[in-house]
């Protein structure tokens, strides 16, 4: 079976579009497009909101509410929205399916970004915030120059988790007749073409792994070493005494 899957993945015919079937590159592109649109919208909503809630401590119930959304079964919501929205679109357009899909994807991506951004800002040491304001930073300067950079590790982990969920769920979008890598899975299932179905699964898994690797790399360069703790190993912390001459006041001993 594994051999059949590899054969399916290797077949050049599956890497080209035909009149009836779209090839792997096209479906991959569709999958990535869905993912990017959803992530961009979710980030634009959740990041500023999370920063605002974390900075001001107001509207915290929104974080709880967003997390409660996670109890919803995503397929169910996807089917429901499709059934509601698609009849309003006619003719040669996918929008009736794209819109519900993107809504579901955004709903999925918002909670991890929002709650991690909020938690990240909350975790910034009170002393650092106090010092920042006390030195004359304005509210937005504190947010931009201290709170945001310090919460980047948590924001990144939220965004990475959102990305994985969106890639996973975009696969299910093919179930409501859209393109994307999930098309191979659901077409394969319908045609009892298991190599195609499993091959689709392999492609989705690879896409998720690569996306996460890419984000991990960006995170490595975006997060200050002072926070991630990747210092050069040469620097050993010397004791305090070494840095300051011990001043003999009245208390030297005989």
């Amino acid at each position: 079976m594994i051999g059949d899957v590899l054969t399916w993945l290797n077949d050049p015919a599956h890497w080209r579009d035909t009149r009836v079937d779209k090839g792997i590159p096209t479906q991959l592109q569709t999958h990535i497009t869905f993912t990017l649109i959803a992530l961009a919208i979710a980030l634009a909503l959740a990041l500023p909101l999370g920063l605002f809630i974390g900075h001001t401590g107001r509207l915290t119930f929104l974080v709880t509410a967003a997390n409660a959304l996670r109890a919803l079964p995503t397929v169910g919501v996807l089917v429901l929205l499709t059934v509601i929205i698609s009849p309003h679109f006619h003719g040669r357009t996918d929008l009736g399916f794209v819109i519900p899909t993107e809504i579901v994807l955004v709903f999925l991506a918002v909670p991890p970004i929002l709650s991690n951004t909020y938690a990240g800002v909350q975790n910034v040491s009170a002393a650092a915030r106090d010092a920042a304001a006390g030195m004359g930073m304005t509210g937005t300067q504190v947010l931009r120059k201290v709170e945001l950079p310090c919460s980047l590790p948590l924001i990144f982990s939220g965004f990475r988790s959102a990305t994985l969920q969106v890639i996973a769920t975009a696969t299910v979008a093919s179930y409501v007749t859209l393109g994307g890598l999930g098309a191979f899975i659901y077409d394969g299932l319908q045609q009892q073409d298991f190599p195609q179905m499993i091959g689709g699964g392999v492609l989705v898994a690879l896409l998720a792994l690569l996306a996460d690797l890419l984000l991990a790399t960006i995170q490595r360069y975006a997060v200050s070493r002072g926070i991630s703790g990747r210092f050069s190993t040469k620097s050993v912390i010397p004791a305090d005494a070494a840095t300051a001459q011990v001043r003999t006041a009245e208390a030297s001993t005989v």
């Binding site: 769920t169 696969t171 899975i185 499993i198 989705v204 898994a205 792994l209």
Partner: peptide, 11 residues
Amino acid sequence: YTIPSIALFVM
């Protein structure tokens, strides 16, 4: 945990 569920199901 990175592998999407649907992909893991079919794999």
